[in-house]
């Protein structure tokens, strides 16, 4: 891949910068000069990328071959990799809100933590977050009927409120703890929680294969989730192997062959989604 490096010239802006141009789709095929002149939005002002970043490296002819490395903390930059379709973005620090929102392909790696709405309504591609994620990870925007529709988000740390709200397809893996309302309004898709799952898990979850798998402790399940059985489903092996082999989560293999308690709901809305909780001991 051809590497384009962006070095922040400033830090900790009080008004965040909107820079959806930090995407392989936007920069591919342009000259370095043209990349420097790309528009970014700072409050109500339209400015250029070069006012905030030093731009160096190579620009690829197409997005598939483009790697963008953002050096340092850019928690003040929103929409990095938004709507990207291919290529790769690496952020060597924290990133701001809406990272990878509505993306359909490619890969984003964030070595720090991310703000709210990361991967919101994404339909494809892979987002890896080494740190924590804010609220509404992979969620539906307000007024939108569907959240994440495909792709995978792997947060090695913890995730905030309403992760996967309105999720329809795809996979979210939370390596740490999950805040309340994770998987609310889900209508498809799979969420793995390796840490502690907080209250209101799967609230108003419908069906269509919606599945939340808890490998850690569960604070409390809604009473509208009905316990069915404790069993060792074969399909779990497929998911756990995928986590291990494709995402490098080796500890997932420890749960292969383990028994799970199966709950169905949310019966409050006639839902037949599932929450599977690993059996302790």
């Amino acid at each position: 891949m051809m590497e384009l490096r962006l070095k922040p010239k400033v830090s900790g802006l009080s008004i965040p910068l909107e820079a959806e141009v930090i995407s392989p789709d936007v920069v591919a095929g342009k000259t370095l000069r043209e990349v420097e002149e790309l528009r970014v939005y700072h409050g109500n002002r339209v400015e250029t990328l070069s006012e905030y970043f030093e731009v160096e490296g190579e620009v690829a002819p197409n997005p598939e071959e483009q790697l963008i490395i953002v050096e340092g903390d850019v928690s003040w930059v929103k929409y990095i990799g938004a709507e990207m379709t291919a290529g790769k973005v690496i952020v060597k620090g924290d990133a701001g809100m809406h990272l990878g929102s509505r993306m359909t392909g490619g890969e984003i790696i964030v070595e720090g933590s991310v703000g709210d709405w990361a991967g919101a309504e994404m339909a494809g591609g892979l987002i890896r977050i080494r740190g924590d994620a804010g609220d509404l990870l992979g969620a539906a925007y307000r007024g939108s009927p569907e959240g994440m529709r495909g792709g995978c988000i792997f947060v090695e740390g913890s995730a905030g409120y309403e992760t996967g709200t309105g999720m329809r397809r795809g996979l979210i893996v939370i390596g740490g703890d999950a805040a309340p309302f994770t998987g609310a309004h889900m209508n498809g898709g799979v969420i793995f929680i390796l840490g502690r799952a907080a209250k209101r898990l799967g609230a108003q979850m419908k069906g269509n294969g919606s599945l939340i798998i808890c490998l850690g402790e569960v604070e409390e399940l809604l009473p509208t989730f009905v316990y069915d059985t404790t069993y060792t489903p074969t399909f779990m092996r497929i998911y756990l192997k995928t986590l291990s082999e494709k995402l490098g989560i080796k500890r997932a293999e420890e749960y292969i062959g383990r028994a799970f308690r199966r709950y169905r709901g949310d019966r409050a809305v006639g839902g037949d989604g599932e929450i599977l909780v690993v059996e302790r001991g």
Binding site: T104, G105, M122, A123, G124, G125, L126, R149, G150, G151, C152, R169, G170, L171, G188, G189, V190, N208, G209, P233, F235, I238, Y239, T242, K246, E274
Partner: peptide, 18 residues
């Protein structure tokens, strides 16, 4: 029966039935 989905948008798409 439950439809199991795998790989949508990031791996080879596969479907299973439970």
């Amino acid at each position: 029966q439950v439809k199991m989905r795998l790989g949508d948008g990031w791996l080879r798409r596969r479907r299973f039935w439970r």
